[in-house]
Amino acid sequence: MRVDIYRRAEAQGRFSYLVVPENKVLPQEVTNLDWERHAQGKDLNEEAKRWPELGIEQPGQQLRDKGYAITSLDEQRPG
């Protein structure tokens, strides 16, 4: 699946990532936060159990359930 990746700075130099299908708008529940585009049109396997480089667990299920996938709090990545 081709996706667009956004990231947001967190405490202690860490980042959270938000992934949406390519060219989709950010979901309304996250548009008021400071997400910046990190990558566009990246091909990721939504059937993978996790995307470790983004700290995202069960990306396919998150995309189906919410329309986006997001880093869990305990998986935030260093910048």
Rank of each mutant, 00 (worst) to 15 (best):
E29K: 12
R77N: 01
L63I: 03
V19I: 10
R8Y: 11
R7F: 07
K42T: 00
P78A: 11
K24Y: 10
N32I: 14
R14D: 09
T31K: 14
P52I: 04
S16Y: 09
M1I: 06
Y68E: 01
A9Q: 11
Y6G: 06
L73A: 14
K66L: 10
H38L: 01
S72F: 03
W35F: 12
D74I: 11
Y68F: 06
E47W: 12
Q40K: 12
V3Q: 07
K24A: 05
P21A: 11
W51Y: 15
R2F: 14
E46G: 13
D4H: 02
W35L: 10
S16I: 02
K66T: 04
V20Q: 08
Q58M: 11
L54N: 00
G60W: 09
R8M: 12
R50V: 03
S72E: 07
K66F: 08
H38F: 05
L33V: 11
E36V: 06
D74A: 07
R7T: 05
E10R: 14
Y17G: 09
I5L: 03
E47Q: 15
G13S: 13
V19E: 00
Q76I: 12
D65E: 09
E53I: 15
K42R: 05
P59A: 11
E36I: 01
V3P: 04
N23Y: 06
P59K: 10
Y68G: 01
V19H: 05
P52E: 06
I5Q: 01
P52Y: 09
L54C: 00
E75I: 10
E53Q: 15
Q61M: 05
K24V: 04
A69K: 08
D4K: 03
A69V: 08
A9C: 04
N23Q: 14
Q62C: 02
E57Y: 02
Q76W: 13
V19S: 00
E22Q: 13
G67P: 04
T71V: 04
R14V: 09
A48T: 08
R50E: 03
Q40R: 10
L44F: 07
Y68K: 03
P21Y: 12
Q76A: 10
G60K: 13
Y68W: 04
A9M: 06
E75W: 14
R14F: 13
G79P: 06
K24N: 07
L54S: 03
P59Y: 05
E22C: 06
G13R: 12
T71C: 05
V25D: 14
Q62Y: 03
P21R: 14
V25T: 13
L26A: 02
T71Q: 03
G41N: 02
K49Y: 04
P52G: 02
R64H: 09
R50S: 01
L26D: 02
G67M: 07
V30K: 13
G67L: 07
L18F: 04
Q62I: 05
D43A: 14
R37P: 05
R2I: 12
D34Y: 12
L73V: 14
R64F: 09
G13L: 10
S16W: 07
I5R: 04
S72R: 02
V19M: 01
E57Q: 08
A9W: 06
I70C: 02
K49W: 08
K49M: 07
L33Q: 15
H38Q: 06
I56L: 10
